[in-house]
Measured scan of single mutants.
Amino acid sequence: KYKEAKESFQRFLENHEKMTSTTRYKKAEQMFGEMEVWNAISERDRLEIYEDVL
């Protein structure tokens, strides 16, 4: 289930129109921090996936 959450988060970042190569992690956290997809995984994993996607 956790792996699915990580994959969902990656797809979310890859497909969200507001995500560009210039979007900083903290800005994304402000935009999406309340969303379930954002909070479903640990911050360490979130940051790792974020850096992989951008």
Rank of each mutant, 00 (worst) to 15 (best):
Y50Q: 02
T22Y: 13
M35Y: 10
A28D: 06
E43M: 02
V37W: 15
G33N: 14
S21Q: 14
M35H: 06
K18H: 12
I49M: 03
R46E: 06
D45C: 01
A5L: 09
D45T: 07
E17L: 10
S21T: 10
R44W: 07
V37L: 08
Q10K: 15
A5F: 04
F12C: 05
E14F: 09
T22N: 11
L13S: 04
E14M: 14
E51G: 12
M31V: 03
K27Q: 10
E17V: 13
M19Q: 06
E48P: 03
D45A: 03
S8W: 02
A28C: 13
D45Q: 00
V53E: 07
Q10D: 00
R11F: 12
K6N: 03
E7I: 14
S21N: 14
I49K: 03
K3T: 10
F9C: 02
R24V: 14
V37A: 09
R24H: 15
T20V: 11
E4V: 07
V37F: 01
N15T: 09
N39L: 06
G33C: 01
E51S: 13
V53W: 14
K26T: 15
R44D: 09
E7W: 02
D45H: 03
S8H: 12
H16W: 01
M35R: 09
W38S: 08
Y50L: 06
Y50E: 07
K3Q: 03
A28I: 01
D45G: 02
N15S: 02
K26L: 09
Y2M: 04
Q10L: 09
T22F: 08
Q30L: 06
F12M: 11
H16K: 03
E51I: 02
D45E: 05
I49E: 06
H16F: 02
Y50W: 13
K18P: 01
R24I: 12
T20I: 09
H16A: 11
K6Y: 03
M35K: 06
A40D: 04
F32E: 03
R46G: 05
M19S: 01
K27F: 06
K6A: 03
H16G: 04
E14V: 14
E4F: 13
E48K: 14
N39H: 07
T20M: 06
T22L: 10
T23L: 14
S42E: 14
D45F: 00
K6F: 03
I41F: 04
E51C: 11
E14N: 02
M31G: 05
E51A: 10
I49L: 05
F9Q: 06
D52W: 04
Y2A: 04
V37I: 13
R46A: 05
L47V: 14
V53R: 11
R11S: 14
D52H: 15
E36W: 01
K26Y: 13
K3I: 05
D52F: 05
A28R: 01
E7S: 08
T20G: 13
E48G: 07
S21C: 12
K1D: 01
Y25D: 08
M19D: 04
F12D: 09
E29I: 00
E29M: 02
V53F: 13
Q30H: 12
L54F: 09
L47G: 08
R11V: 11
S8G: 08
A40E: 09
E36G: 04
T23P: 05
T23S: 04
K26N: 08
H16P: 02
A40P: 06
E14I: 12
T20Y: 05
E14T: 15
E36R: 09
F32C: 07
M35W: 01
R44A: 15
E48C: 08
R11L: 10
E29N: 00
K26F: 08
K3G: 05
K1M: 06
G33M: 06
N39M: 01
R24K: 14
V53L: 12
E34G: 13
R11P: 03
S21E: 12
F9W: 00
E51W: 06
S21I: 02
W38G: 11
E4K: 06
K1W: 00
Q10I: 10
I49A: 06
F12L: 10
F9A: 07
F32K: 07
R44I: 14
R44N: 14
E36H: 10
R24F: 07
A40F: 02
R11K: 14
A40Y: 01
M31I: 09
E7D: 12
E43G: 06
K6R: 13
E48T: 13
A40I: 02
K3D: 00
D45I: 00
Q10T: 01
A5Q: 11
A5W: 02
Q10P: 02
R46V: 00
K26D: 15
H16L: 01
Y2R: 03
Y50G: 08
R11C: 07
K3V: 04
T20F: 08
R24G: 15
T23E: 10
L13Q: 03
S8L: 11
E36L: 06
T20H: 15
R24E: 15
L13V: 09
E17R: 11
F32D: 08
Q10C: 07
E43Y: 00
M19Y: 02
F12A: 05
E14G: 06
N39R: 11
Q10F: 11
K1R: 07
E34R: 12
N39W: 00
E48Q: 15
R11N: 15
V53T: 10
R24C: 15
R11H: 10
R11D: 09
K26S: 15
E43R: 05
K6Q: 07
R24A: 15
K27E: 15
E7M: 12
E4N: 09
R11T: 11
A5T: 07
R46C: 00
F12K: 03
D52K: 15
L47C: 06
E14K: 07
W38N: 11
M19R: 05
E48D: 10
Q30M: 09
A5P: 05
K18F: 10
W38M: 04
K1S: 04
A5M: 08
R46W: 00
N39Y: 00
M35E: 14
E48W: 08
K27S: 14
D45P: 01
E34L: 02
L13N: 06
K3E: 04
M35A: 09
Q30C: 05
L13I: 08
G33I: 00
S21M: 12
E29T: 03
E7Q: 13
S42T: 14
L47F: 13
E48H: 07
L13K: 05
S8M: 12
S21G: 13
Y25P: 02
Y25F: 05
M35N: 06
D45N: 05
D52Q: 15
A28E: 05
E43A: 04
N39V: 00
T23D: 04
M31E: 06
S42G: 10
T22D: 14
K26V: 13
R24M: 15
A40Q: 13
G33L: 00
L13H: 09
A28G: 03
I49Y: 01
A28S: 02
S21L: 10
Q30R: 10
T22W: 10
K27T: 13
N39E: 05
Y50S: 08
L47W: 09
R46Y: 01
Y25H: 00
D45L: 00
A40H: 02
E43C: 06
R11E: 12
F32G: 07
K26G: 12
M35V: 05
S42F: 03
E29D: 02
F32I: 08
E7N: 09
K26A: 14
E51Q: 15
H16N: 13
M35D: 08
